[in-house]
């Protein structure tokens, strides 16, 4: 049976806890001098305790913007959330007063950014920056703040944490800096951590260490984790479910195993095929032809049709809703059955 796109998102992964976050029909646009850029066009997802959601997409797919909307750190102007709800434990963050919202930021929902070198303030020591969380949100003294910072740095496995508390960001390696960011996000024991491309700026070996660390910390704290990435390979082992985004919309979502083994949307299929694989060594790379559309000028019908090998007449006019493909699994493709049958 196929149904039209529903505002409520997919059910929880088995074995997870309470519903933490429910994003429904979120729209974000940027009003620029050259016109309106529709960065996020009605995405929905849910996140539960102990659950890891991977949001997958190319740059310009709206994945980072949707996370920034959840954090409430989009610059207005030019960015506006024009529609939708972001419910944290049932309360809509978008209708909250700024002061209430600020209390959620950092304390209940924390964020880790891609490039820790620029995301940390270069003129303050890392300990100062972690301690700031306790000093501002908890009114702790400087001394207590630094002590807790050292504890946290130890917890994210920074060697000789006590001695390094007063060091500055530029004195750490890339991987250690990202650990500092993680420590900072972890400081007030948040329910949710959103990690925006946390490993993109790092070496492959360090990437795995950081992903391991995040998933260990998640087991310890029971927090919900949102991983934003363009590389499914990085998150395949730790994620429970995946949202694939294209042109500001969710095109496919479901449990990570299902999508990893057999995609139900031509775009996710293309993404999978473009991952270089060891067992195909010496073979050709398979990029998705064409480029993602400009978000100021999204094609009519299915936004992926100009690049889609399955595209027909109907795709240029009718926007596909999210069809139920399987339990807890949806695809926004008119021909999802064909894509699924095609295998990959």
């Amino acid at each position: 049976m196929t149904t039209a796109a529903r505002p409520e998102a997919m059910p929880a992964t088995p074995g997870t806890g309470d519903l933490l976050l429910e994003v429904s029909d979120l729209h974000v646009e940027f009003r620029t001098r050259r016109g309106v850029v529709n960065a996020v066009n009605g995405i929905s997802y849910t996140l539960h305790e102990r659950e890891t959601l991977a949001i997958l997409g190319e740059s310009g797919s709206g994945k980072s913007v949707s996370a920034q909307a959840v954090m409430g750190i989009i610059d207005t102007p030019p960015g506006y959330v024009t529609q939708g709800e972001i419910r944290y434990r049932g309360e809509d963050l978008l209708t909250m007063a700024e002061s209430e919202r600020r209390a959620v930021r950092g304390q209940q929902i924390a964020m880790i950014f891609q490039d820790a070198l620029t995301a940390l303030n270069p003129v303050y020591s890392v300990g100062w920056q972690i301690a700031e969380m306790y000093r501002v949100h908890r009114g702790s003294s400087r001394k207590v703040g630094y002590a807790k910072a050292a504890e946290l740095m130890d917890r994210v496995r920074i060697p000789s944490a006590k001695e390094r508390v007063k060091d500055y960001p530029h004195q750490f390696s890339g991987g250690m800096r990202q650990r500092v960011m993680i420590a900072m996000a972890l400081a007030l024991d948040p329910d949710i951590i959103i990690a925006d491309e946390p490993t993109t700026a790092l070496d492959v070996t360090v990437q795995a260490q950081i992903m391991d660390l995040l998933s260990t910390l998640q087991e310890e704290t029971g927090m919900g984790l949102i991983l934003i990435t363009h590389d499914l390979g990085v998150v395949a082992d730790v994620a429970d479910k995946v949202c694939v985004m294209y042109a500001g919309k969710v095109v496919e979502r479901g449990p990570v195993r299902d999508i990893y083994h057999n995609t139900a949307h031509p775009y996710s299929e293309g993404l999978m095929a473009s991952i270089p694989r060891l067992d195909q060594k010496g073979g050709q790379l398979h990029p998705i032809k064409g480029a993602p559309p400009s978000l100021a000028n999204i094609p009519p019908g299915c936004p992926f049709h100009p690049r889609c090998p399955y595209a027909r007449e109907v795709c240029t006019t009718d926007h596909p809703p999210l069809y139920d493909v399987a339990p807890r699994r949806q695809s926004a493709c008119h021909f999802w059955e064909e894509v699924l049958a095609g295998g990959n």
Binding site: M71, I73, R102, A103, V104, R105, G106, Q107, A110, M111, F113, D115, T118, A119, L120, N121, P122, E132, M133, V136, H137, M181, M184
Partner: peptide, 10 residues
């Protein structure tokens, strides 16, 4: 970026 981080820290 670090200003955005500070905002995200609440």
């Amino acid at each position: 970026d670090y200003v955005r981080t500070a905002t995200a820290k609440g």
